[in-house]
């Protein structure tokens, strides 16, 4: 209990403190913040729906690209749900790998996206927004995301979603049609991931094929593994990966991959991911 309160206080401090610090720290914190929203979106899909995605960079990256090409295209951003959701036909066991392979495919494909003579490997320039403003927007969205997920998760509707997660056939037996609940759950998760992608593009003012890379595909999985699947700890996990990676990369190249390797190996032992065992 004390640890839990301490983690929440630490997260709040991490959210507030950068407002008073220099531009550089704020940028790092903003980056960690958007990735925390991304992790929260992933966690909802994994915890409440039981689908562990290793390709959550799909809604994240597609929305970032749409925003960079033309912000009006963001109208199509909710449709990213239908890029990830169809992969659920592979079942919960295969979904992580199907989504991972699809995200890698998009990573390759993104090198060929050229629009009005721009794009390709170089990517697109995104509308840049003032860092102070985007930081405050990101903090607000993170808090709202946590509240939204908490509210949905504890509602009558959320209970039905969890019933579908635990046993689809039993849920059907008590009159719950699983499809709308699954689509709804995917839509919530993908929308939050899309918002995170847009914020990421707005912070750095640029989007390149790297937004589909394994760094982003695996990020929420790794952060959630560090946070042991708890929402506040996973937010802290996101900050840990970003800060450790940044400060240790000069000594160990691309240090985040070392964290990824350890997290993936440990996760396969600790069962902290994948409710895929409960698939129907």
């Amino acid at each position: 209990m004390l640890v839990s309160i301490a983690i929440r206080i630490l997260v709040l401090v991490l959210l507030i403190l950068p407002v008073f610090l220099d531009c550089y720290t704020k940028l790092l914190a903003a980056s960690a913040l958007t990735l925390a929203i991304f992790t929260v979106s992933w966690l909802y899909l994994e915890k409440d729906l039981g689908w562990a995605s290793l390709g959550h960079s799909i809604p994240f990256g597609v929305s970032a690209y749409l925003f960079a090409i033309n912000p009006l295209l963001l109208f199509f951003s909710p449709l990213t749900t239908f890029l990830l959701f169809p992969l659920s036909i592979f079942g919960k066991h295969t979904f992580p790998f199907a989504s991972f392979v699809f995200s890698v495919f998009l990573w390759y494909l993104a090198h060929h996206i050229v629009f009005e003579g721009k794009g390709g490997e170089e990517g697109f320039r995104a509308p840049s927004i003032n860092l102070d403003l985007i930081y405050l927007i990101s903090v607000t969205i993170l808090i709202l995301s946590c509240l939204l997920i908490w509210k949905i998760s504890n509602s009558y509707f959320g209970l039905k979603v969890k019933a579908v997660r635990d046993d689809e056939i039993a849920a059907k037996a008590i009159g719950i049609n699983s499809l709308p609940f699954k689509v709804f759950g995917f839509a919530i998760s993908c929308s939050l991931a899309s918002i995170a992608g847009i914020l990421h593009a707005a912070i750095f003012g640029h989007v390149s094929p790297g937004v589909f890379s394994p760094y982003f595909s695996l990020f929420p999985f790794v952060a959630a593994t560090i946070g042991q699947g708890k929402i506040w700890s996973s937010i802290l996990g996101s900050y840990t990966v970003v800060f450790l990676s940044w400060f240790l990369s000069p000594y160990v190249p691309e240090f985040h991959y070392a964290i990824y390797a350890v997290a993936l190996i440990l996760a396969s032992y600790t069962q902290s991911y994948a409710r895929s065992d409960r698939s129907v």
Partner: peptide, 16 residues
């Protein structure tokens, strides 16, 4: 690094 994101962060580190 190899990304614009890391470039911006490194740039601001040098400014600091």
């Amino acid at each position: 690094g190899d990304k614009p994101e890391t470039t911006k962060t490194a740039f601001l580190s040098l400014v600091r």
